[in-house]
Amino acid sequence: MSEAAHVHHPNYVKVWGILIVLLVLSVLGPEIGIKWVTLIAAFGIAVVKAYLVAKNFMHLNVEKRYVVYLFLTALAFMALFFFGVAPDVMQGSGTNWEKPGWDAPAPVAEPGHGEHGTAESGH
């Protein structure tokens, strides 16, 4: 059964090295503290890492195309879900309703002895 399944094995250690470098970048980027750098470092790099893992480790580059399309379809459904739901869920109030606790800070008291202390925001 596995005869047909043999694939050409790329240099996995090299791919791993790139992934680790990306990981370091994604951790260091946000330390600068600029919002857009944080977002790109966090999520842009995550997409690149996911691409590398899927392509090289999961061998999706040599798998039948429709497997990739299958995953993209699943992701597209999730995007559909997000954009269909977000207009409702991301509102604090709407036609004849409101969510009393939506914009308020967390009702349970924030612990005071956390490393970074308590933060008050959200109003």
């Binding site: 879900f81 739901v85 409702d88 869920v89 409101e98 969510k99 606790g101 939506w102 308020a104």
Partner: peptide, 21 residues
């Protein structure tokens, strides 16, 4: 927890979306 509790920062309509999706 308060995922769907509007008094504590949740949203009951989210369940309706999850369910009907």
């Amino acid at each position: 927890t308060a995922f769907f509790d509007p008094d504590r920062g949740g949203d009951p309509v989210l369940w309706q979306h999850l369910f009907w999706f």
